[in-house]
């Protein structure tokens, strides 16, 4: 599903964010991306949904090179990849329902279908009763659920989460992780960058560890391996 071939990313001023990364992630996998701050986790994610281009190397998604995409094709790549961030990135002047529906509106989905799909996905993340509240009326966990609902409402095949539990307390973090696991069980490939070593250790999922831009470890049923 996702293949990195010798991917190197150098930012301005000779800063190596990623060095010679080669990795393969299969369809339906759940992968933790771990490592200390500045290890290159966020760059890895940005490369995935083509916010950045690699300096060297090749990235394939579903067999297609995404480095050779024309800028007109980028939106269509992104429709297959949902993204969730640490800071939620919800629109503060819109309700939960509107925030999720927005993702379908901009794709010109018919209103009837929008309504059905938003209601379905809100039920899936457990926010059916909170649809008409604004983000500031929600807890952190609920805000992140809204963001996840927005990311998956278009039924993408890949869900990418950049430290989705970074702003949440441990109990809420576990809820969010179990939601991501549920989504994964329904067939979506999930890639999650995280600092939450306890969660990583307890789940025994695949762990890709980065340090100073290098791939230092890739375990099938891994542990965090660092004291966070």
């Amino acid at each position: 599903m996702i293949q990195f071939f010798n991917v190197t990313k150098i930012y301005k001023g000779d800063i190596y964010a990623l060095k010679d990364i080669t990795v393969k992630i299969d369809k339906g996998e759940f992968v933790f991306l771990v490592g200390p701050s500045g290890a290159g986790k966020t760059t890895f994610i940005r490369l995935l949904f083509r916010e950045e281009l690699p300096t060297k190397g090749q990235i394939l998604i579903a067999g297609r090179s995404i480095t050779r995409l024309r800028s007109k094709e980028i939106p269509f790549l992104r429709r297959n990849i949902g993204v969730v961030f640490q800071d939620f990135r919800l629109l503060p002047d819109r309700t939960v329902y509107e925030n999720v529906a927005f993702a379908l509106q901009v794709l010109e989905v018919p209103p009837k279908e929008i309504k059905a799909r938003v209601e379905e996905v809100l039920a899936q993340v457990g926010l059916s009763g909170r649809a008409h509240l604004f983000p500031h009326q929600l807890s952190g966990g609920e805000q992140q659920r809204t963001a996840i609902a927005r990311a998956i409402v278009n039924r993408p095949r890949i869900l990418v989460a950049d430290e989705p539990t970074g702003n949440l307390d441990p109990a809420t973090s576990r809820e969010i992780i179990s939601l991501l696991l549920d989504i994964n069980r329904l067939g979506t490939t999930v890639i999650m960058a995280t600092h939450a070593w306890d969660i990583v250790n307890s789940l025994k999922k695949r762990v890709i560890a980065l340090d100073k831009g290098r791939l230092v470890r890739d375990d099938k049923e891994g542990v965090y391996g660092y004291e966070a």
Partner: peptide, 17 residues
């Protein structure tokens, strides 16, 4: 700009924005 940012992430075309 936040709205535009999100539109880009969920795959809206540039002309739509």
């Amino acid at each position: 700009r936040r709205e535009i940012n999100i539109m880009k992430y969920v795959g809206a075309t540039d002309w739509f924005i």
